[in-house]
Amino acid sequence: MELNNSVIVITGAGRGLGLEMAEHMGREGARIALLDCDVAALDSAVAMLNEKGISAKNFAVDVSDELSVTQAFNAVETTMGPLDGLVNNAGIVRDGLLVKAKDGEVVDRMSLSSWQQVIDINLTGVFLCGREAATRMITAGRQGVIVNISSISRAGNQGQSNYSAAKAGVAALTVTWAGELARYGIRVGAVAPGFVETEMTASIREDMLNRITAGIPLRRLGQPSDIAQSVSYIFTNDYFTGRVVECDGGLRL
Results as ranks from 00 to 15, higher is better:
S6N: 02
A40W: 00
I216C: 07
V196Q: 00
L42K: 02
A228G: 00
M80N: 11
S225Q: 13
A47H: 13
T213Y: 06
L209A: 11
T201P: 05
S68R: 00
V147N: 06
R109F: 12
V63I: 15
R219T: 09
A155S: 15
G222L: 01
L209N: 06
N237M: 02
H24W: 11
A172Q: 12
V106W: 08
G222R: 01
V231D: 06
Y239Q: 13
I186Q: 07
V99P: 08
N58H: 14
L251T: 11
L35H: 00
L251C: 02
K52L: 07
A33P: 06
N210P: 10
I138Q: 10
A166S: 09
D62K: 09
A155V: 13
E51P: 05
D248M: 09
N157D: 14
M1D: 04
A178W: 08
D65L: 04
S68P: 02
R219A: 14
F195G: 05
L19F: 03
G81S: 09
V99T: 15
A75R: 14
T79C: 14
K100I: 09
G156S: 11
G141A: 06
C129W: 04
A56Y: 08
T174V: 13
I32N: 05
G12Y: 01
N210I: 13
D65M: 00
V107W: 03
V99R: 14
D248K: 08
G249T: 04
N5S: 15
L173F: 12
A214Q: 11
V126Q: 02
S153R: 00
G159V: 03
V231S: 07
S64I: 04
G29H: 09
L86V: 07
L173I: 13
E51K: 13
P82Y: 06
R131N: 10
M48C: 10
M80F: 04
A190D: 04
K102Q: 15
L218E: 13
F127I: 08
D62A: 09
L128M: 03
V107S: 11
H24L: 05
V245Y: 09
I152A: 10
G242E: 07
P217R: 07
E20T: 14
I92Q: 00
F195K: 00
G242W: 02
Q116H: 13
G26W: 08
V46A: 08
Y233C: 08
T78K: 13
C37Y: 11
G169V: 07
G125Q: 04
E2L: 14
G215I: 03
G18T: 00
E132N: 07
E246R: 03
N4A: 14
V245T: 08
A60Y: 10
E51A: 13
P82I: 08
N58Q: 14
S230P: 02
K52F: 05
L42Y: 06
M110E: 11
R142P: 05
K52I: 07
D248C: 12
E132R: 09
F127G: 08
V147W: 01
